[in-house]
Computed example of a mutant assay.
Amino acid sequence: MVRTPKNQALGKALRQAREEHGLTLRAFAKRLERDPGVLSRWETGDRTPRPEQVAQVLTSLSINGERYEEIVALAYGADDPNWVATTLPAQRQQLEAVMDLERRATQIVEVSPLMIPGLLQTSDYIGAVMEGGGVPESEIGARTAHRISRREAITGQRPPGLVAFIGEAALHQVIGSRAVMRAQLQFLDRMAARANVELRVVPLASGWHPGLEGPFFLIRSGLDEVVHLENRKSGLFLHEHADVKIYREAVGMVESVSRNAHESRSIIADLARRMEERR
């Protein structure tokens, strides 16, 4: 059985629920009168339990209410080729799955034609995006902190390689204020100095390329590759080989029209310097 982002998210939720109650896998399997090997494969995503089996696990752990409903919902369509999230709870589950994949990744490729890539956004830039998007002021601080925590994936010990293709338009689009953008560009320049981070600017004059169809992530972990796409209303995971291959080829097309890493860093640093001079 192929592991999917959704059944891995389900497995993680089941494992966390068990561990919160201080139960070993063997002890919990005995309580449920199930083979501990089967339970282990549920938790790793190598095998997907049926919704009624998930319900049995959660009921045994006295988990109910909204959390119960969200975890059981993960069991439906967990083996499907696509994971589409349109509700807020499902989008939250997808974001957690993205963060988990980023922490385990060997390489992350992000194509972002109109905005600064999420892993490279400053807190002020994130806050300005949320404020402009109508997020309640009382929620902006917590949401910003949550997004900033994603950066630990590329700044911690043994981080994955990050290749970020940034549309030139994103460097000139003022989000929040000129001061916010100046600090954002300066931060990009500092991140580009990291050995595991490669920034590639895609010029406005590059003509058509797949990045113009919308932003996307390609996350690689060992032999596994998944694609994540996100828009204002929904998120989508793709994991089947044919689908991932299309986006891998798209990365190659974007790379062919982008500036190299040295030129890109010079473009970013020069723009940041000019904004500093105009203060």
Rank of each mutant, 00 (worst) to 15 (best):
R194M: 14
R178H: 14
E198T: 15
R178V: 13
L162N: 03
G161I: 02
E139R: 14
Q173K: 15
Q157N: 11
A142F: 02
E152W: 01
P203V: 09
G133H: 05
M191L: 14
A169S: 15
V202H: 04
P210E: 08
E137R: 12
Q186C: 06
H209Q: 06
G214E: 10
S138Y: 04
A128M: 04
Y125G: 04
P160H: 09
A195L: 08
Q157V: 13
A145L: 09
A142M: 04
F187Q: 13
M130T: 00
I175R: 01
L185T: 08
F165M: 04
N196E: 13
V202F: 08
R143E: 12
S138G: 02
G167R: 10
A192T: 00
A153W: 06
M181E: 02
F187W: 14
E213S: 12
M191C: 03
G167H: 09
E198H: 05
Q186G: 14
T155I: 04
L204Y: 02
P203I: 05
L185P: 08
A169L: 13
G214W: 06
A195H: 13
V180R: 07
G167S: 03
E152S: 14
R190Q: 15
G134C: 11
N196H: 13
W208F: 15
V174Y: 01
M191S: 06
F165D: 06
G133Q: 11
G161Y: 10
L185S: 04
R147S: 06
R147Q: 12
A169E: 14
M130E: 03
A205F: 01
A128Y: 01
G207M: 05
L204M: 15
E152K: 15
S138W: 00
W208C: 00
V135E: 13
R143V: 05
S149H: 11
G167T: 10
P160G: 11
P210K: 06
D189P: 00
P136Y: 09
G134S: 09
V197K: 02
R150Y: 12
H209K: 07
Q173Y: 09
R178K: 12
Q157W: 01
R178C: 00
L162P: 08
R158T: 13
H146G: 13
E139D: 15
E168G: 03
I126C: 02
E131R: 14
S206T: 04
A170I: 05
R194V: 00
L162K: 08
R200S: 02
R147I: 07
G167Y: 07
S149Q: 12
E168S: 08
E131M: 02
I154N: 03
V202C: 09
V197T: 10
I154F: 10
T155W: 00
R143N: 06
E131A: 14
A145H: 04
A170G: 07
V174H: 01
E131H: 11
A193M: 08
E213R: 12
L212N: 02
G161D: 12
S177M: 02
A164E: 07
E139N: 05
G176T: 06
E152N: 11
M191F: 10
G161K: 11
P160W: 07
H209M: 09
V174T: 15
V129N: 09
I175H: 01
G161N: 12
G127F: 00
Q157T: 14
A193I: 00
G156D: 10
V201F: 03
E137T: 11
A193Q: 15
R151T: 14
V202W: 07
S206R: 02
L188Y: 06
G214A: 09
S206E: 05
M130C: 01
I154S: 08
A170K: 07
